[in-house]
Amino acid sequence: MSINNLKPGSRATVFGFNQGSCTYKQKLMSMGLVPGAEFIISKLSPVNDMVEIFINGFSLILRRSEAEILKIDKVCM
């Protein structure tokens, strides 16, 4: 599942990475998006092609198209 399938406010966990830029993947991991990490989608902005997520107590913005590299699972609440 990709980050873009989720609605704002939903929780998800990372379970892996798709093929893609190694630097980008490492940067995501240094921000805490390692397999097993849980985050909340705070905002999806298709007009700006942005997604804002809340992880480990801070907000992060990613481009929606680039964030496709994250394989995620939705967490049921």
Partner: peptide, 8 residues
């Protein structure tokens, strides 16, 4: 460059 930015 891919974008990863903190929103403080």
């Amino acid at each position: 460059q891919p974008l990863i930015m903190e929103l403080p």
